[in-house]
């Protein structure tokens, strides 16, 4: 297994008592797979990501990468947050090399390595522009390249396309699949969009709230490459219906509580 979580749970101590954000979650991600976590807001998706990225110490459990315990270690997996967080005072190229720069690459080498990728992935000619002049989709591409270009085999994507309009979003999804095929990285993707999860993933983990937990793991048997029209096939809609039912099951519980 590339990435493995063993009974990871997170409990926050609050003034009024403790709050279990995440009940023990176990997860195994094979190398090179694309897996998604879907669930309503408050199901602990982002908390789980923070634990994997080393930004949030888990209350119990361990995170393993290639068998090595990386619990609480930062800089071992690529992590892309919801916002693109491009630094406005850096050019696109200098934003993309940020991860490599932090990890100690010499500036010349990291730039030389990044340039061909910018060309290949639709940012050619924009290297020396500043982020403020880019469209939302381009900013997101730059942020994703920044995440991909650090030397880690696992990348975590936290609703990266959540803020984009539907058309840009569809294009970005196809673009992401192309990147994933090229780089061969292991991807963990968080979204609350069921269509997006099915279209992109090999495996979907459906989560529920109070406490945050995984209620079901679903394999997506659709073959690749997947055309955009796949969302109208019966296999796709059956999976979608199943996911909707699972997510709705969780809603009444929430309302009762």
């Amino acid at each position: 297994m590339k990435l493995r979580l063993d009974d990871v749970s997170v409990t926050f101590q609050l003034p009024g008592g403790s709050h279990q954000a995440l009940s023990p979650v176990s997860l195994a991600v094979p190398e090179g797979r694309f897996i998604s976590l879907i669930g309503p807001s408050g199901c602990g998706k982002s908390t789980l990501f923070n634990v994997i990225a080393g930004l949030q110490p888990p209350t119990t459990g361990q995170v393993r990468l290639d068998g090595e315990d990386i619990t609480g270690a930062i800089g071992r997996v690529g992590y892309m947050l919801q916002k693109d967080l491009l630094l406005p005072w850096r050019t696109v190229l200098d934003n993309v090399v940020l991860g490599m720069e932090i990890q100690g690459w010499p500036a010349k080498e990291s730039r030389a390595r990044a340039r061909p990728y910018l060309h290949r992935y639709g940012l050619g000619g924009f290297e020396d522009r500043f982020p403020a002049t880019l469209s939302g989709g381009m900013r997101q591409r730059a942020a994703l390249l920044r995440t991909l270009l650090i030397d880690s085999d696992v990348i975590l994507l936290d609703e990266p396309f959540g803020a984009l309009d539907a058309q840009t979003r569809a294009r970005m999804q196809e673009w992401l699949l192309q990147l994933w095929a090229d780089f061969g990285k292991t991807v963990v993707f968080v979204t609350h969009d069921i269509d997006e999860a099915i279209f992109l993933s090999d495996t979907i983990h459906v989560m529920a709230t109070r406490p945050g937990r995984i209620i079901e793991t679903i394999d997506v048997p659709l073959s690749r490459p997947r055309p955009a029209s796949i969302s109208t096939t019966s296999g796709f809609t059956a999976l979608k219906q199943h996911c909707i039912e699972l997510l709705h099951q969780d809603q009444p519980l929430e309302d009762a509580a």
Binding site: L55, I102, Q103
Partner: peptide, 24 residues
């Protein structure tokens, strides 16, 4: 704070966060 989290997720030291993010 999210920017700080980004830097730390990339494995940055406090000094790197200070120099490359807080000061700018």
């Amino acid at each position: 704070r999210d920017g700080e989290r980004l830097f730390y997720s990339l494995g940055a030291s406090r000094w790197q966060v200070f120099r490359k993010f807080v000061i700018p």
